[in-house]
Design a protein around this nucleic acid. Structure first.
Lengths: 247, 247
DNA sequence: CAGTATTATGACAGTTATGTAACAGTTTTA
DNA sequence: TAAAACTGTTACATAACTGTCATAATACTG
């Protein structure tokens, strides 16, 4: 099958949220349905606005990670929307993919001038659209992804996906990795189990809070093997935190 | 936003002038217009030649800082122009970015062999093109055309299209070659399957992510045959990377 | 110090991701 | 033009990882 579980999407850590928000601005209901039907299973958080004006409005009020913009719209043309979005600080950096029915080169051109990141002409293959969306989301934007994080003697290289304690490598599974990174992003801060479930597993994952304990345990064991005792502090009846001073 | 002031361009210390000279070799007038329209405001000094022969001529007579080269041209093909430019002392070091149409993706392989520094497939985002131009200009000249890359005991001769492990040849197909080179350009960095699909196959290829796994497998097997175990690391649920220390 | 609440951890069954062989369709080569 | 080489997809086996539970260990309370 083509569809990944939402989990796989989460792994793209450059995206602001676990499931990237996509705003679709498109007036044709049938098109909207097709898009929703295909994008949701990919783990995207899809929203729709049916006309240009409300599209711009929605984008500014709650900035999505990416905008799918139909070329022909009632009220405002795609170009005009693009312009407006590019003018606003909130939305300036958001990647825009234009959906255009016309295949004339001229229109494409104008779309790109205006600041769309990409365009795709109807009829398009869903696969290709998804590929383009993912690619656009991956493209580095203003917010630079942190490459290395370190707390005490622990060092995480995000690019290489490697973790070291005092130069010796620590072997972690995917969830442990994310858990560690989450904790390390705010050293000493105590996270509740529920918070961690949200941040690491995603809001939609309804799991036992005990699951967190188990993974914390696994994380600890992995660090023990690397010669590091006591990296995570348990705060009774609150949660966990990572400590600056590893022992 | 996207557009840097011309001043910022100057930071590329290898660039001859304050506004880098760019030679566009492209026969399609509308394309030329788009490029001019977008590149001039970025502070580039843009010149245009409409066919291959005069393109080469112009490049030799007044060497630009960078060449944008369309793949399909009347008179001479992109490949041939590349070859000629690389042969001439005046132009040998000038970075070349190839513009190729979607259907010609297969030729990318050859494009890089020939000595293009980068290629970009139409339709491209202007932003991306500009980013790549700047990146190419920033790059120190000497390594503009990378002849050989090596990681650990693996050595790739780009020009001859040959790969060695510890001096013994490794036989690879075109895609495996590109895959290997991509991985080798950032050793240890983990690439997601989607990223690799973009970088090796091109964004509009829209293939299954599993295809990457299969090719990684083929790459591994090829190296096994040459006596090299464990060259590519699998990072579960993230992707693959190439390791410095081959075993 | 007993009694209670909370956390640590081993075990395990279920799930998911990866490695590969096989195959049919293409492209390249001879 | 036929043979050889290369591709993308699929299916299946296997390995790696998860979540849950039961039980043990620990911390708090009065």
């Amino acid at each position: 099958m083509i569809s990944y579980s939402p989990k796989q999407i989460k792994t793209g850590f450059t995206v602001s949220a676990l499931s990237p928000k996509i705003l679709i601005v498109e007036d044709e209901p049938s098109q909207v349905e097709i898009l929703k039907f295909n994008l949701k299973p990919e783990g995207f958080d899809v929203r729709v606005e049916m006309d240009g004006e409300s599209g711009v409005q929605a984008a500014i009020e709650d900035p999505p990670d990416l905008i799918l913009l139909d070329w022909m719209l009632p009220n405002l043309t795609g170009i005009e929307i693009c312009r407006q979005l590019r003018r606003n600080t909130q939305t300036r950096e958001i990647p825009i993919i234009m959906l255009t029915a016309r295949s004339e080169e001229r229109d494409k051109v104008r779309g790109l001038d205006i600041g769309a990141d990409d365009y795709i002409t109807k009829p398009y293959s869903i696969k290709e659209l998804i590929a383009r969306i993912k690619s656009a989301l991956r493209r580095p934007r203003a917010s630079v992804v942190e490459q290395k994080i370190s707390v005490g003697q622990i060092e995480v290289d995000m690019r290489k996906h490697k973790v070291y304690f005092d130069k010796s490598p620590v072997d972690l599974g995917p969830i442990e990795f994310r858990l560690l990174v989450t904790l390390m992003q705010s050293p000493e801060r105590v996270f509740s189990r529920d918070q961690l479930l949200d941040m690491v597993w995603g809001i939609s994952a309804s799991l036992e809070t005990r699951t967190v304990d188990v993974h914390i345990g696994r994380l600890r064991r992995a660090f023990n093997r690397a010669g590091c005792k006591q990296i995570i502090r348990t705060v009774r009846s609150f949660g966990y935190s990572i400590e600056e001073v590893a022992v």
